[in-house]
């Protein structure tokens, strides 16, 4: 094979690969929109959950979060309610300065055996992470923890 035809073939092969890649992974061409989703401030999210009922601080809610999160895109958190599972209806995780502050809501039944949730969340900046437990009698208890973020995670 001479040099010219070699160059031609490789050029075609490369073009083919690039094209094939974009067909195989269409997610590379992400869909674009003009507006971001609507903002949900903390007060609004809180109202949505509690319907205006008071939320008291309690040491029955155990919230584990790092004091300093180097990467805001992945912040491991664990929330647990130290009450019998029959008394706990749900755990809501809120982040008070994110674009959408209502991060995760988990609804339990007695088949869970334990009101526990562990996940990884995004934090755009330094803020409080709040775990609100909804109890079967209709009351709400919470625990909150400030997390320092060095690099934000919400784009």
């Amino acid at each position: 094979m001479d040099r010219r035809s070699f160059l031609k073939t490789t050029a075609f092969a490369t073009a083919g690969l690039t094209l094939g890649g974009s067909v195989l992974f269409p997610s590379n061409a992400a869909e674009l929109v003009d507006n971001p989703p609507p903002k949900k401030p903390y007060e609004e999210a809180l109202k949505e959950i509690t319907k205006g009922k008071p939320v008291s601080d309690s040491d029955k809610v155990k919230l584990v979060a790092p004091e300093i999160a180097e990467n805001g895109a992945v912040v491991p958190i664990t929330a647990e309610v130290e009450l019998p599972i029959e008394q706990v209806k749900a755990i809501h995780i809120l982040t008070d300065k994110n674009h959408n502050t209502r991060t995760l809501s988990v609804y339990f039944t007695p088949a869970n055996g334990k009101a526990y949730i562990s996940t990884r969340i995004r934090l755009a900046e330094t803020m409080n992470v709040v775990a609100i437990a909804e109890l079967a009698d209709g009351s709400f208890i919470k625990a909150q923890k400030p997390v320092k973020v060095t690099i934000g995670g919400c784009g």
Binding site: L104, S105, Y107, N112
Partner: peptide, 12 residues
């Protein structure tokens, strides 16, 4: 159905 969750974009 024993557990259900509502998830937002603030999850990693």
């Amino acid at each position: 159905k024993i557990t259900w969750m509502e998830v937002s974009g603030s999850v990693s």
